[in-house]
Design a protein around this nucleic acid. Structure first.
Length: 221
DNA sequence: AATTGGCCCAACCGCCGAAGA
DNA sequence: GTCTTCGGCGGTTGGGCCAAT
């Protein structure tokens, strides 16, 4: 049995107060992002290190872009999702200022529904033939491939791409993106510039794994 | 005005891989 | 080679807000 990431006692949970936010911001401004486990104690926060990390990365970071997604951002998310599946952190990495949580939420609340309305299966981005909303599908069938959110409104489908290829190495994923015939300019623009040179080199070196991934993606798209 | 149902999003949970001892 | 710890990730949930009834 794995130990909990932190002492559960004396740990605040739930929404962050302004004071807590300020403490975390102040600490990171001075000391930078370091060891998340030690930050709560050092910053005087009764929070789990993971919670601090999440709060900082998803909410407090100064470079976060908030507000509605632009059309081109949405388009890019759809393209990247078709390629990568539910790997939100990778998708978010190509949307400057957006977090994985934000992208994930936006996908589940907006894009998924939009695609369904358009008659496109959000799992594989193909026009669906038998895809149906949960209320019209059999509960038995649904239970194996999808889970519902709490009020049974929208099915949370597990992407076949993500389910099959979860935890593919970062290099393989970058290589797949760079070498993808269906995603070129949109993606290279968003790719962190500092990584492009190194990644292209790696893409060549890892051509074997890239081929494998591309082939798998072809099967799914 | 009160209730209900749906939507949205922040935050938690549990798992996994990487790194270090 | 094995074990432990940590950071990171995706899935899921709790709860606030708002529109419809």
């Amino acid at each position: 049995m794995r130990k909990p990431c932190c002492d559960k006692e004396n740990i605040n949970k739930g929404a962050w107060s302004k004071q807590e936010d300020q403490k975390l911001i102040d600490y990171i401004r001075v000391h930078g992002e370091g060891c998340w486990r030690s930050i709560p104690k050092a910053a005087g926060l009764h929070r789990c290190g993971k919670s601090c990390r999440l709060r900082w990365l998803n909410y407090l970071r100064p470079d976060i872009k908030r507000g509605i997604f632009a059309e081109d951002e949405e388009d890019l998310i759809i393209k990247l999702h078709a390629l990568l599946g539910n790997r939100w952190s990778l998708i978010a990495g190509r949307l400057p200022g957006r977090t994985d949580n934000e992208v994930k939420n936006y996908w589940n609340s907006h894009i998924r529904r939009k695609l369904i309305k358009m008659g496109i299966d959000p799992n594989n981005h193909k026009p669906h033939q038998s895809f149906s909303l949960p209320h019209s599908s059999s509960a038995e069938g649904a239970s194996n491939t999808e889970s519902m959110n709490k009020d049974h409104r929208v099915p949370i489908f597990k992407s076949p791409v993500a389910a099959t290829h979860r935890r593919i190495s970062f290099r393989e994923e970058e290589s797949a993106i760079i070498s993808s015939p269906t995603l070129n300019l949109d993606l290279t623009i968003a790719l962190p510039s500092s990584m492009i040179g190194a990644l292209e080199e790696k893409a060549i070196q890892n051509s074997e794994s890239t081929k494998t991934l591309d082939m798998e993606i072809d099967l799914n798209c």
